[in-house]
């Protein structure tokens, strides 16, 4: 601390630090690792909940964007971090799929982390360019089945939400579409708007405004029930392909060995944050809803991760695409 004082730290910061020391966890600021670039949908979710969780815990949660290799770099970093509760990870469905997509992962997904809870499950929408022929989901299914290999399917790169949903869609419809990968959602969406590609399936985070603006044609949602936001869009189950049900779920993890009380404290603050009207509204703008309190728990996240790893393994292996 002598050095700190030499470094000219402000008196206010010192007082704040001392005040925090008096209580138990958390004693200092918490770093939330987001394994994707700043500005993306996952980063947005993280920044929204981190602020409220920090307020609940009486500390500051700062976001560290540690992107790269489909989120596995950030996850690996957290897996190796000290299990003291001051480094947490907010990751999405990729936590489960990278277990199969990457054949030489630096960590063992199921044994390297403790669980805090689910944050949100973002629905996905099946889209096509705005002058795509079929009028509704029923004729879409028929049309795609009939013209399969002459249609193009855009995705935002291996492991991206649009890639996962696309794989499911092709397997459910039993047609191989011509897959066109892009580097990120932006360019993929641009080409869909420009009519350069035919079909894409992506999170409502990216698609809601485009659907409302009429720049793309929406056919279905991938949730078990219809969305309040788009009551006219049928679910994939209604269209006879329940196998294509998928959502981009987000969870918060801590390194293995983090004390259970710490995870409980984080989980409690997460539940409070998710019940905050401002968060509910912000999530609604993105076309999603916060996870209910019973899902924002360590047990629910653990179960989700286990079932999802088991679910995606055969899907990815059948598609034969690996990211390594």
């Amino acid at each position: 601390m002598t050095y700190l004082r030499l470094a000219g730290v402000s008196v206010g910061a010192l007082l704040a630090a001392n005040a925090a020391l008096a209580q138990g966890y958390p004693e200092r600021q918490i770093t939330m690792v987001v394994p994707f670039a700043a500005g993306g949908p996952t980063d947005t979710v993280a920044r929204l909940v981190a602020e409220k969780m920090g307020t609940e815990l009486g500390t500051q949660i700062i976001i560290e964007n540690l992107g790269g290799a489909g989120g596995t770099l950030g996850a690996a970093q957290v897996a190796e971090a000290e299990a003291d509760g001051y480094t947490v990870l907010l990751h999405h469905i990729g936590m489960a799929t990278s277990e199969t997509l990457y054949r030489n992962l630096a960590y063992d997904t199921l044994n390297a982390f403790e669980y805090v809870g689910l944050v949100t499950e973002v629905p996905m929408t099946v889209l096509a360019r705005k002058d795509f022929e079929p009028a509704d989901m029923a004729s879409f299914v028929e049309y795609v089945k009939a013209n399969g290999d002459s249609l193009t399917l855009a995705n935002a790169g291996i492991g991206a939400a649009s890639h996962l949903c696309g794989m499911l869609l092709m397997q459910a419809l039993e047609v191989p579409l011509v897959t066109v990968p892009y580097k990120g959602t932006g360019p993929a969406m641009t080409d869909l708007l420009g009519g350069q590609v035919d079909i894409m399936c992506d999170q409502t985070t990216n698609t809601t405004k485009q659907i409302q603006g009429g720049t793309v044609k929406a056919y279905a949602v991938t949730t078990p029930e219809r969305l309040e936001l788009f009551p006219d869009l049928p679910t994939v189950a209604e269209a006879g392909i329940p196998e294509a049900e998928v959502s981009i779920w987000h969870g918060i993890y801590t390194p293995k060995g983090t004390p259970a009380e710490v995870n409980e404290a984080l989980s409690a603050s997460l539940q409070k944050a998710l019940a905050d009207p401002a968060i509910v509204q912000a999530f609604a703008d993105l076309g999603t809803t916060p996870s209910p309190a019973e899902d924002a728990t360590p047990a629910a996240l653990k179960e989700k991760l286990e079932t999802e790893i088991a679910r995606w393994k055969p899907v990815i292996e059948a598609a034969g695409v690996y990211a390594d």
């Binding site: 470094a7 000219g8 730290v9 700062i62 976001i63």
Partner: peptide, 22 residues
């Protein structure tokens, strides 16, 4: 340089650097 950078990047801008590591 260290004082300046710590004040600017760590305190003022709040970059997620640990000031003193493990």
């Amino acid at each position: 340089v260290t004082i300046f950078s710590t004040l600017v990047f760590s305190y003022a801008l709040g970059l997620p650097f640990q000031r003193f590591g493990p």
